[in-house]
């Protein structure tokens, strides 16, 4: 097990290095630079700005400086917010995205498992057809549509009840998180529902389920101990990438609900060619993704002992 984890960690480090290097050179290959702005500046000012950010040095040297700073965990100062460090931006805004993401994942996982199991039990009957219809909607409709409709729904609900049932946007209390988390989790929930349904149907046809029935176990016990536990495995597999997809892909939801998450900075940085923030957020998100995948692999081993053995 230890060797298994060590191997995965090493592969993870190489992946992160590759992400950082590829992003660094791709970013510098894009025409334009972060120092350009609406108002043209004098050569002197430009030279000083270049010197401050080290852009006056050759690209290879910039890369070496970047890598050595990265190893010390320092991503430098933002170009758009010249008095903020990229580390501070990540530290202040990632927790917001993470809380939102965790809540969304909880909603998505619970919902996905529940609906998936339900559709499998009622296979080809009305509840199954209804839910699967909604699932197709959930997968195919883009997130910003959910976000906009969810928000508009809140406006109407608040207007009908005359009191503020849930806030339309903003951040601060738990009530601010509910709608964005639901919206953010919908796509994943739909995906997990489908996955859970297929896997549940597979499990239901297995011999050991028939054996369980033959043993005279109660339906609930078979459902909880045998069907659900075995069917959940594929769901856990995709959960890892989904967690990072949700925590990193929430920028549309963050825009619409005015949430101070990191996703917004991630996207804006690319638009503004804010070199330091692009590097900081990409490497951070990359590392996060890698870590999640490794964690899920380890978790997998606990749920299914066979994985541990073969590893």
């Amino acid at each position: 097990m230890f060797r298994y984890i060590a191997k995965r960690l090493l592969a993870g480090v190489i992946t992160i290095w590759f992400i950082a290097t590829a992003t660094f050179f791709a970013m510098h290959a894009v025409p334009g630079d972060p120092l350009m702005n609406d108002r043209a500046v004098s050569d002197e000012v430009r030279r000083n700005l270049e010197a401050r950010y080290g852009l006056d040095k050759p690209l290879g040297e910039q890369y070496i400086i970047f890598i050595s700073n990265m190893l010390r965990g320092d991503f430098g100062i933002s170009f758009t917010q010249q008095n903020r460090r990229v580390n501070d931006i990540i530290r202040e805004h990632f927790p917001v995205s993470a809380i939102l993401g965790i809540l969304a994942i909880i909603i998505a996982a619970l919902g996905g498992i529940l609906w998936g199991a339900l559709t499998a039990l009622y296979r080809n009957r009305l509840p199954d057809i209804l839910i699967m219809l909604l699932v197709i909607l959930g997968i195919s409709v883009p997130g910003f549509v959910f976000a906009a409709t969810g928000q508009l729904a809140l406006v109407h609900v608040n207007a009908i009840f005359g009191v503020k049932v849930l806030p339309v946007a903003g951040w601060g209390t738990f009530s601010h998180m509910l709608m964005p988390a639901l919206v953010l989790g919908l796509g994943t929930m739909a995906l997990l529902t489908r996955l859970m349904r297929t896997s549940m149907i597979d499990v239901m046809g297995e011999d050991y389920i028939r054996t369980a029935h033959a043993k005279g176990l109660s339906k609930q016990r078979i459902f909880l101990r045998h069907q659900l536990r075995n069917a959940i495995l594929p769901v856990v597999t995709v959960l890892g990438p989904q967690i990072s997809a949700i925590t990193t892909g929430g920028f549309v939801v963050e825009y619409v609900f005015a949430i101070p998450g990191l996703g917004r900075y991630f996207v804006q940085a690319v638009q503004q060619l804010d070199y330091t923030v692009i590097m900081g957020t990409t490497v951070f998100y990359g590392a996060f993704l890698v870590l999640m995948v490794i964690l899920v692999d380890i978790l997998y081993g606990f749920i299914d002992p066979r994985v541990r053995v073969s590893a």
Binding site: A148, V155, K164, V168, A169, V256, A258
Partner: peptide, 16 residues
């Protein structure tokens, strides 16, 4: 209290 460039979100906030 709200920072967003989404005009639709701001209209919703105004309506609310």
């Amino acid at each position: 209290d709200y920072i967003t460039s989404d005009t639709r979100a701001r209209l919703n906030l105004f309506l609310d």
